[in-house]
Computed example of a mutant assay.
Amino acid sequence: MLVELAIGDAYGAGFEYVNKKVVKEHNNLQQYIQHPRHLSIKPGCYTDDTQMSLAVAELLISDDEWMLENIANYFVNAFKRDPREGYASRFYQFLTDISDGKQFLEQIKPYSDKSGAAMRAGPIGLLADEKQIVEYATIQAKVTHDTPGGVNSAVAAALMVHYCQYQLGDKQDLGNYLKSKVPGDWNTPWQGKIGHLGVDATHAAVAAIISHQDLSAILKQCVDYTGDVDTVATIALAAASCSQEVNQDLPEVLYSELENGQFGLKYLQKLDQNLKNILIL
């Protein structure tokens, strides 16, 4: 799951808020592309979506308590060990300037309704207990996105993974399942460009999963939406990669060309296995 969400993030990063013409010409899954403006993010490199998901995953398999300061500590540590572009500029500077989770919580203004809490919530959905998923997704959201939209989108993103991993129903009923658990309109088709709101990115990810049977088609659909496509792809592939109803057919090139440094492909594969061994029934 972490590998696939990283692929969605890295592939989508080349298309984030680009001109529709670029999407039309290059969204063919044949390669990672260079973003025309974000030149520091090289093709095949993931962004903050994946790095913060790693932090969440690492805390989940640790012996540390699931609490605000520990969550913030894991976010800070993940960034400090591997500083990378992709974060919003002010948040990047914020992480650069602080030293630990305590300082993070003292200085953060956690009132965003954007998609940051949803993009990193996927690993939480591997937990077996639905009540615990809601609790954990809510707590981690409140570190940075303590708003109804921020919390609800994070809970929905985590429950998407849970629904798919534990085969709680047909893929077509994913939206109805979420609607029964989380306030929001999760079960109608998505149309148009993806903006910054967490509920919109999560809604669009649900629609992509419901509409397609292949992981490659889901990824392509996420990018075809245009806008904040790397976040949508991260959320969608985290869940869809866990579904037995989805054909796991991503092109090999997206695996082989994904970054493979210290926290790249091999690290993601190892952490994926640890999550499955520890969390999944």
Results as ranks from 00 to 15, higher is better:
residue 158 A to V: 08
residue 106 E to K: 10
residue 29 L to H: 11
residue 217 A to P: 08
residue 181 K to S: 08
residue 2 L to W: 06
residue 135 E to S: 10
residue 154 A to F: 08
residue 15 F to G: 05
residue 126 L to I: 12
residue 103 Q to I: 01
residue 32 Y to P: 11
residue 32 Y to H: 10
residue 84 R to W: 02
residue 238 A to N: 11
residue 29 L to W: 15
residue 250 L to N: 09
residue 62 S to V: 05
residue 124 I to Q: 09
residue 64 D to T: 04
residue 74 Y to H: 01
residue 225 Y to C: 05
residue 257 E to I: 07
residue 100 D to Q: 01
residue 4 E to F: 07
residue 189 P to A: 05
residue 3 V to G: 05
residue 129 D to L: 09
residue 257 E to W: 12
residue 236 A to T: 02
residue 52 M to R: 00
residue 95 L to Y: 06
residue 58 E to L: 06
residue 110 P to Q: 09
residue 234 T to D: 03
residue 151 V to C: 01
residue 222 C to H: 04
residue 219 L to V: 06
residue 123 P to G: 11
residue 125 G to S: 11
residue 59 L to H: 01
residue 18 V to R: 06
residue 50 T to E: 00
residue 149 G to V: 08
residue 85 E to F: 08
residue 281 L to Y: 14
residue 260 N to F: 10
residue 40 S to Q: 12
residue 151 V to G: 00
residue 41 I to E: 06
residue 74 Y to Q: 00
residue 22 V to R: 14
residue 214 D to A: 12
residue 235 I to Q: 03
residue 262 Q to I: 11
residue 82 D to G: 00
residue 85 E to Q: 07
residue 234 T to P: 03
residue 196 H to F: 13
residue 101 G to M: 04
residue 145 H to D: 01
residue 53 S to Y: 01
residue 20 K to P: 10
residue 238 A to M: 11
residue 102 K to A: 04
residue 83 P to L: 01
residue 209 I to V: 07
residue 270 K to Q: 13
residue 220 K to N: 10
residue 207 A to W: 00
residue 35 H to P: 06
residue 42 K to I: 14
residue 271 L to Y: 08
residue 187 N to Q: 10
residue 90 R to S: 13
residue 85 E to G: 02
residue 150 G to R: 06
residue 185 D to Q: 11
residue 264 G to V: 10
residue 42 K to F: 14
residue 258 L to G: 06
residue 30 Q to E: 14
residue 96 T to N: 15
residue 111 Y to R: 12
residue 200 D to P: 05
residue 245 E to I: 15
residue 267 Y to D: 09
residue 151 V to K: 04
residue 93 Q to C: 10
residue 147 T to S: 07
residue 234 T to C: 08
residue 214 D to R: 14
residue 29 L to V: 07
residue 272 D to G: 14
residue 12 G to P: 07
residue 21 K to L: 13
residue 39 L to F: 12
residue 50 T to R: 00
residue 190 W to M: 08
